[in-house]
């Protein structure tokens, strides 16, 4: 059929309705997870297993990327600040950019591609091989037994990973700035400490990472749970997890930042 004008408009309408519908279903899915989290609290061993899968196994990529991001910040910041003769403020630059933005956001992006995609693939394959239906046959609630522990594992891991990322990054900046470039050790830390505020900067960064944790795990689990039980759909769901959660992280980051650092 030739694409007529009405056809295109109808397609736009279909797309918009679809995306709104999907958002609503995701929100209901999140509520359902929260509602049936009782098992995860009672059998915390299930959550610990998922913290291992999504947290501990992401540790290496988080530490290495944090170190390199911090070192790059140290190098670039030193080059720029040196022009103004204020390379002593390098600690402030490194710490504030890591704690406020890069720590939570980059850690969340890495988490989405490292752990989020794994969750989607795992849950999607469970659905394809009818493990989830088999559980339902045995009167085991798959949301309580499979989905909720993965959700809480991710939500607990995310802020810890972001904090580790920031801390390692600060030491990366220290390594380049102080050890290699020769910025004064004392002023690096003392200027950092006087400029970084515990509540306004560190705590807001932690809040960001918690929000990102909720967003990533919800999207990843929903994509896996919602996937059609074919190989093609699982690959599509995995891709969509990474794309959607990356977009969600960046959009949420803008919204949160505009609320947190208004007029500062």
């Amino acid at each position: 059929m030739k694409p007529s004008k009405e056809n295109i408009i109808a397609r736009i309408g279909h797309r918009s309705i679809n995306s709104i519908w999907e958002m609503g279903v995701t929100a209901r899915f999140l509520l359902q997870i929260l509602w049936r989290s009782g098992t995860s609290v009672r059998r915390f061993q299930l959550v610990i297993r998922e913290i291992y899968a999504s947290g501990v196994l992401s540790l290496i990529i988080i530490v290495v990327s944090g170190l390199f991001v911090g070192m790059v910040l140290g190098l670039q910041g030193y080059q720029t600040l040196q022009t103004y003769g204020s390379e002593n403020s390098l600690g402030v630059l490194v710490a504030l950019s890591l704690v406020r933005e890069l720590g939570p956001v980059v850690a969340a992006l890495l988490f989405a591609s490292r752990a989020g995609s794994a969750i989607t693939a795992e849950v999607g394959l469970m659905k394809t091989t009818e493990q989830l239906q088999a559980m339902e046959m045995m009167a085991v609630d798959p949301v309580a037994r499979i989905i909720a522990p993965r959700f809480w594992g991710g939500v607990i891991s995310m802020p810890l990973l972001a904090a580790i990322f920031s801390m390692v990054g600060v030491y990366g900046g220290y390594l380049v700035g102080v050890v290699v470039m020769g910025v004064d050790d004392g002023s690096f830390w003392s200027q950092m400490q006087s400029a970084v505020n515990w509540r306004d900067d560190v705590l807001n960064g932690v809040i960001k990472s918690v929000v990102f944790g909720f967003a990533i795990t919800t999207i990843a689990l929903f994509q896996g749970y919602d996937a059609m039980p074919t190989a093609e759909w699982i690959s599509r769901a995995t891709t969509r997890t990474v794309v959607n959660s990356s977009l969600a992280i960046l959009a949420l980051d803008f919204i949160l930042t505009s609320f947190m650092f208004k007029g500062m």
């Binding site: 710490a95 704690v99 920031s166 400490q193 505020n197 515990w198 900067d201 560190v202 960064g205």
Partner: peptide
């Protein structure tokens, strides 16, 4: 982050 990086206000 609380003790070394920020001033803990």
């Amino acid at each position: 982050l609380a003790l070394k990086v920020s001033n803990m206000d």
